[in-house]
Design a binder for these strands. Structure first.
Lengths: 200, 200
DNA sequence: GCTTTTCTGGACTTGCTGGTCCATTTTTCG
DNA sequence: CGAAAAATGGACCAGCAAGTCCAGAAAAGC
């Protein structure tokens, strides 16, 4: 079923509108009606573009938001080629999540879908894998320029860092404080450099 | 409203039954009816013991599960007095969450409640605070016996470790793999000891 | 034992929200 | 231009699950 230019625009409007709505009020509070009102669409349109209904839409939103997560960290995340770049990235991550506050659309969208479906799981895994891949690349850069010990397992370090970020964000969502996210990032980076003390 | 012995038993049966149900099928799939069937109770009982309805029950479950989280880590978490104790604790945490698999009743229960309510936030914060407190105490023990550098900020290290655990569990729930949880714990512990290499 | 309170059963109500349907308009494309 | 396909509007349906109510059984307490 080919989409006309107009159709594609509408579809996108729906996805973005739904994402915003979720960001503002959380997934559980979002009804199809809200999305309709926000995006000036009718129910038939929703089901026209997302035949399988709400889950279908939510999945699209999840994909959309997953892409955003990575994009928002660029270009820093993609070029963690120096110690300085790492710190710029660190600051960006904290700023991004501090701004986002307690609503993690991706996280909640996935939660709503129950994680049961293979599709949702795939979205999550893909996001995590991409993220970790870029972190690991960054670790290797540090190893190359002698900042980080060559004995470190880059992949493992990246995994640990990623876990710290996820947990930090989770705690941020629960408590509203960025303390843990910062602690995770700072101790993680300090570790890469072989420092005992965490900066800042 | 004083509870008779029987009443208290019923109430507890409901909470535990609901918790099990959630653990097995996730919060979103749990209907009051399911809880009724499982605990051999009627709807009037549910509303008798939890006047505010489902949210009320869910909150009780959250509290119940929060307590479990800490309990399940005892006695290790409470006495992280040596490097060895730390490792025993590490193994216990991994085992616990591996067994639990993809269902984190606490996490989902809180998600369902939206995190909006003050009550749910309080439960989460209390749990995190307790957890972190015990970790920090453990860090100080390591500093006392010379295993960890005295320059480390125990509270901050504990925060980072906690974030890593939370993220690791989150990723475990999403992907089913304990890789990240292990990586977070192992690098975290290695860092405490000032090792460059992560064990295992 | 008798009264009061608590506990339990289950039928009933109700509101909400996802989903269906068809008629109408707009776009596409030969 | 005209036919086919896509896009849109909005009324309608259906089911579910939360929450209400009252009557009756069991326990508590004097």
């Amino acid at each position: 079923m080919p989409l006309t230019r107009k159709g594609a625009a509408t579809r996108q409007r729906i996805v973005e509108g739904a994402a915003e709505q979720i960001r503002e009020h959380g997934v559980f509070a979002v009804r199809l009606e809200d999305v309709m009102a926000r995006t000036a669409t009718s129910k038939s349109q929703l089901f026209h573009y997302f035949p399988a209904g709400k889950d279908d839409l939510l999945l699209a939103v999840a994909r959309h938001e997953a892409a955003r997560v990575i994009e928002d960290q660029q270009p820093e995340l993609g070029s963690l080629t120096s110690w300085d770049a790492w710190w710029r990235w660190r600051d960006k991550v904290i700023a991004r999540y501090r701004a986002q506050g307690v609503n993690c659309p991706l996280h909640t969208a996935l939660a709503q879908l129950g994680g049961a479906t293979d599709a949702t799981r795939a979205v999550t895994c893909e996001l995590l894998a991409q993220w970790q891949r870029q972190l690991a690349a960054g670790v290797r850069h540090l190893q190359d320029d002698g900042t980080a010990a060559p004995t470190l397992d880059a992949e493992r370090e990246a995994a640990a860092l990623l876990a710290g970020i996820q947990g930090g964000v989770l705690i941020l969502m629960a408590t509203g404080a960025t303390t843990h996210l910062e602690a995770a990032l700072d101790t993680g980076l300090a570790r890469l450099r072989g420092e005992t003390e965490a900066r800042r």
